[in-house]
Design a protein around this nucleic acid. Structure first.
Length: 495
DNA sequence: TGAAATGTTGGGGCG
DNA sequence: ACGCCCCAACATTTC
């Protein structure tokens, strides 16, 4: 018996008549490495795990359609995992505070546990909930279950939040030493539930239409799926990550983002798995793949740091000179971009991958983002909203950071003149056109030379490939070089 | 985590 | 053998 088991064992003896505690699941849909759950169990009380579906508590940023699909399946897996421990995960709809109050009143709950959140609306909500519980002398315990480093744990030498990634990450790496992840509970005491809960299906998270069919082929939501993705990536991907990560046709990236978003796996678990992997290899061997991968975990941390300290950035540019930027809203242009009909194959491939699988490779996110904000001069918020609705990994911190970054209005942002050339990017990162052929099949028969710029292909080449521009595939909706000049002019003005 | 424009260098062709 | 030109390759600057 290890120390932990003895500890909880000691409490178990007195627990038979002890009052239960509540554990609120939010974006931490896992049993392993879960500090709030572990603490709740270690308190010696029977634990009532609860998930409350309360989208209105997330303000303007309640989960989009793709995220809801994921959430449904993740919750379903989580409920199964609890069932194996003979515990029921309770589902409720409505206001979290009211659910908690009911459980306190009718089920004698005397303590509440959760892992902290960092989204502006969530911070506000949880702060109030905590205060109201404290006022009534109900125990409240919150934990860090989502970050290597919480936003208030690092600051610049001047005592300000970081706004540039490199010094932020350097500081975090010096500071943090993630330990071994906590084990999943082997056993739990269940409480006798006296409160009526609802069914997962009552949340109505699944889409009415079957657009999510392809999602099922691509993804395995839940803790188990997350664990498998991680070990597969550590085994086959991480050593070549630095070289392979930018090629969207390949499998060079971990694809852990949706799992991380809902906390099906924690960054601590990721970090630890990377360390174990490195320790197995020869030392002083260099570890460019691992460093490069961990710095992506770092960007996630940076996103949370920025979101916490600059909560308005979900809707407003961080840089004040972007106030009143003359974005050119056009419903038609936005629609063409959303549907992947811009006439730029790499952009269209990305947008269609997103629509069909709920995910897009990061290199392509940058390309389509640059295209929206610079070539079309459509506001980054339009892009952020579309991604919010369609991405299974839609995460307020990452989405906000990414869009403000690409627009040039945010933290450590691309300088205003950094405009991606969709043809060059495509030729560099999809040299054989595999990615474009997969997602834009109407161009599949074009030779490599023309796959990324069909409008320049000779007529006979187009004909042979069965491509008629304007009919089977759109003409480019804008001329990139003209659009670039126009964007440079505007961006220069606001500098 | 950019791309284009401009500047520099050096080898080879050629008178 | 020399100077000149061209231009690719690379470096630097600029947007």
């Amino acid at each position: 018996m290890d120390k932990m088991a003895l500890w909880s064992g000691r409490h178990t003896t007195m627990a038979s008549n002890s009052k239960p505690c509540l554990y609120l699941h939010r974006q931490d849909l896992r049993l392993e490495d879960n500090p709030a759950l572990t603490a709740a169990i270690d308190s010696g009380r029977p634990v009532i795990p609860v998930f409350v579906w309360a989208p209105e508590e997330q303000g303007d940023w309640s989960p989009g359609a793709a995220s809801r699909w994921w959430l449904h399946h993740s919750l379903s897996r989580l409920a199964e995992a609890y069932k194996k421990l003979n515990v029921e995960l309770l589902f409720f709809k409505g206001k979290t505070a009211e659910v908690v109050d009911r459980l306190i009143a009718e089920n004698d709950v005397e303590a509440v546990y959760w892992n902290r959140r960092y989204e502006p609306a969530a911070v506000e909500h949880d702060k109030q909930l905590k205060q109201s519980l404290k006022d009534r002398e109900i125990e409240v315990h919150s934990f860090n279950g989502a970050l290597l480093c919480e936003p208030w744990e690092v600051e610049t030498q001047q005592g300000d939040p970081y706004q540039v990634f490199t010094p932020f990450w350097k500081s975090v790496r010096q500071k943090i030493k993630p330990g071994k992840p906590l084990n999943a509970p082997k056993e739990m005491q269940s409480a006798k539930i006296k409160v009526k809960s609802c069914q997962l299906d009552d949340f109505g998270l699944l889409p009415k239409l079957d657009w999510a069919d392809a999602f099922t082929d691509t993804w395995t939501p839940g803790e188990e799926g997350a664990r498998e993705k991680l070990s597969e990536f550590i085994k086959n991907g991480i050593d070549d990550y630095k070289e392979q990560r930018d090629f969207p046709a390949g499998r060079g990236t971990s694809r852990l983002s949706p799992h991380l978003h809902l906390g099906e796996i924690s960054p601590t678990q990721v970090w630890h798995a990377v360390e174990v992997h490195l320790n197995r290899k020869r030392k002083n061997d260099g570890q460019p793949g691992a460093d490069s991968y961990l710095s992506e975990i770092g960007w996630r941390e940076f996103g949370y740091h920025i979101l916490y300290h600059f909560p308005k950035t979900t809707d407003k540019a961080l840089k004040s000179n972007f106030e009143g930027f003359p974005w050119k809203y056009s419903k038609k242009n936005l629609r063409q971009w959303q549907k992947g009909n811009t006439g730029y194959p790499i952009v269209d491939a990305g947008m269609r991958e997103l629509w069909e699988t709920g995910w897009m490779h990061n290199r392509v996110r940058m390309i389509v983002g640059s295209f929206l904000t610079k070539d079309l001069l459509l506001s980054w918020k339009k892009g952020a909203q579309w991604f919010w609705d369609t991405l299974v990994d839609a995460d307020l911190a990452n989405n906000t950071l990414g869009w403000q970054w690409v627009a040039g209005s945010g933290a450590d942002a691309a300088p205003y003149f950094r405009i991606f050339n969709p043809i060059l990017q495509a030729e560099r990162y999809d040299p054989k056109g595999e990615y474009v052929r997969r997602w834009v099949p109407e161009l599949a028969d074009l030779p490599d030379k023309w796959i990324h710029k069909p409008w320049e292909a000779p007529d006979e080449v187009l004909e042979k490939a069965g491509v008629t521009l304007g009919e089977t595939y759109p003409e480019p909706m804008v001329d990139h070089f003209e659009a670039r000049d126009a964007a440079l002019g505007i961006y220069k003005k606001i500098k």
